[in-house]
């Protein structure tokens, strides 16, 4: 009888231990480009992230219209002409962490993530650097990389008074918590 109760309790615990999915709690993805007249920068705090800690698989999805610019006219042009958000509403990344990380041990681990980056309807294989920081019940993911606009067929108009850089830098800071199924 006692054994059964213990087994039952253990089975419940085992169930908990198998919750290997982590999902976004707070996120921040921003990009920046130096420009002579007015720097171009935008920030998106509504990034969807899911990570499977047992396999290292990671999926990221964001709505382009959630990027907020200090200059709203620029934001409108970003969506209307550069990213064509009506046609290509989201950007996604589907990849795998290459290193084996013990997600039960707190600490900071440099990682590389290999996968497919889909932006403006153009898919590109990328290997991106990042850092995984494991804390009690939380995982922090940070990553900085650059995106060449030409790689994703994002046109820079010839007729602009404001010269736009061909490569922009992107920065991600995401906090993940165990996934709760609704």
């Amino acid at each position: 009888m006692k054994t059964i109760v213990t087994l039952f309790a253990l089975s419940l615990l085992a169930g908990r231990a198998t919750a290997q999915l982590f999902t976004a709690q707070t996120t921040e993805t921003s990009f920046f480009s130096k420009a002579p007249l007015e720097d171009i920068s935008a920030i998106n705090r509504k990034i969807g992230v899911v990570m499977n800690t047992s396999t290292g698989d990671i999926a990221v999805k964001m709505q382009m219209t959630d990027f907020s610019f200090p200059n709203k006219l620029m934001q409108e042009h970003f969506n209307e002409n550069y990213l064509e958000s009506d046609k290509y509403p989201t950007a996604t990344f589907r990849g795998k962490i290459q290193e084996l990380i013990d997600f039960t041990k707190p600490g900071s681990y440099p990682v590389t993530v290999k996968g497919t980056f889909d932006l403006h309807g153009v898919k590109k294989e990328r290997t991106l650097p990042g850092t995984v920081t494991v804390q009690a019940g939380k995982i922090a993911l940070t990553s900085e990389f650059t995106v060449a606009l030409a790689d994703h067929r994002i046109e820079i108009p010839k007729l602009v008074f404001q010269k736009i850089a061909e490569v922009i830098s992107v920065k991600n800071t995401w906090a993940l918590v165990p996934y709760q199924r609704q």
Binding site: F8, L12, A14
Partner: peptide, 24 residues
């Protein structure tokens, strides 16, 4: 006990099979 063992097994399997992207 059976249920207790099955529930996590089933849900874990379901999660593993789901494409992560579908959750987003």
């Amino acid at each position: 006990l059976v249920v207790g063992l099955l529930i996590p097994a089933v849900s874990t399997q379901a999660l593993a099979q789901d494409d992560l992207m579908d959750l987003l």
